[in-house]
Amino acid sequence: MRKFLYLLFSLALTAVLITYALWTADRPAGHYLSDLRINLAVDRGTPADRGNLLGIQPELFPTDYQSPERLHRKLAAYLQTARDQGFINEKTVVVLPEHIGTWLMVSGEKDEVYQATTFKQAMNWLAISNPLAFIRALADAQGDSRLDDAYLRMKADSMAHDYQALFGGLAKEFGVTLVAGSIVLPEPSVSEGELKIGGGALYNSSLVFGRDGRPIGQPQRQRHPVFDQQDVLGAERPDVTHVIDTPAGRLGVLIGSDSWYPLHYRQLDEQGAQLIAVPAFVIGRDAWNKPWAGYKGLSTPSEVSLKPGEVSEGQAWRRLTLTSRLPISQARGGVSVFLRGQFWDNGSAGQSFISHNGEQFTDGEARGARLLNLWL
């Protein structure tokens, strides 16, 4: 009798494991509808032969990331609208927002991931659907929040490949220089024209693609991750600043809160940066109008007199982003672009703006997909 029960239990366990394995391998494509419209928010300057800075504020949702092809469809529609309105030329520098590449972590997943009601539920489904990859990532995880590290690390190989294929492909398709927002990867670097990952800490990094679709230089890693990311993300050394040559001029990239530090603008000045791109992301649907929380656990630069709670989050971003504000920044212009949309129970905020000649320009509308153009 004992042998029979053992055999029955073994068969049942085998059936469960086979069913689970078949379930994890099944990746059906769910129904998909997406708004491909984008409105012109800002158009400053006069068209000439010096090129232009073009910020694209997308409105994205988890289902847009169900496959790289779906995300390409939406972003290509935005770029096509810009082309139709005369904003695309061989000297155009396109800027996308922070973390637009990070959400590739949920690409190719089961419907349960996209249908989850909370971010935590979505990450649980992500782990359950990829048990071996999650276990390996958890074993390699670093920092104080190993679970969050594992979620980001478990698909890093495919994320890096999809990031380069998607954004490099868009740059080549539309013949532009493309600042591809940012993506979180372990020790990212470019070797022989390919984006590679390492086995060390995770970094929030931005890569620029040329008109041929190939990376230009090395990824710019974020130097000051905000307080609630410090348990997961590594910080690049404060003195590491990359400036690259583009058809429109020398370009520097400041990721998110890196744009709050006057030191970084002086470093860019020393390298002759003429243009500055700020990919950004603010979590929380109403966060833009709430009191600014300060430097979020980081030391406040001595040049900054702004105190926590003195202004709103949005006002702080526009006061601290010093692009083209003499004498600290000698850049001709810049654009700050925020990622908008809804990622499960995490809303987003941020109102993209153009900086030029010490002034800032926006259209007063935060929500929805927006184009912001500055003729140089």
Rank of each mutant, 00 (worst) to 15 (best):
W375I: 10
L195K: 10
S355F: 06
S10H: 07
V304L: 11
A366M: 14
V190M: 13
Q267N: 09
G193L: 08
Q57R: 09
G368C: 12
T24A: 12
S302V: 05
R266H: 12
L36R: 12
P131H: 08
N373I: 13
A21G: 08
T321Y: 09
W375E: 14
Y151H: 15
R73D: 06
Q220T: 15
G252R: 11
K155V: 04
G175R: 09
S189P: 00
R44S: 10
R50N: 06
L71S: 00
G175N: 11
G347M: 07
D49V: 00
I216V: 15
R70A: 10
S352N: 08
G284L: 14
L75H: 01
E359D: 12
L71E: 00
W288E: 09
A141W: 08
V208I: 14
N124L: 12
L202M: 04
F353H: 11
A12T: 10
I128R: 10
R211V: 08
L132K: 01
L185Q: 05
R319Y: 04
V335E: 06
P58R: 03
S324K: 03
R73T: 03
P188S: 10
D148L: 12
P291W: 03
R221K: 14
F87L: 02
S158P: 00
G297Y: 02
P68R: 09
E236C: 14
V106Q: 08
W288T: 05
I244V: 15
Q66R: 14
D49N: 13
T177N: 14
P308K: 03
R211K: 15
S34P: 01
G181D: 10
R285I: 15
A25L: 13
P247G: 09
V253G: 10
T46A: 04
L275D: 07
L104D: 01
I38K: 02
F87K: 02
A366D: 01
I328E: 15
E270M: 15
S107G: 06
A160L: 03
V311E: 08
S205V: 05
D148G: 14
V311W: 06
S302Q: 12
G143R: 04
I244A: 13
H161F: 13
R319I: 00
P219F: 06
G30L: 03
N39P: 00
M1G: 12
Y261T: 02
T323H: 01
A48Q: 15
G341W: 00
K172G: 03
N130I: 00
S305L: 05
K91G: 02
L374Y: 07
V243W: 02
S312Q: 10
K155Q: 11
P219I: 08
R153D: 02
N204S: 13
L251V: 07
E192Y: 13
G297C: 07
Q218N: 14
K120N: 12
L376H: 04
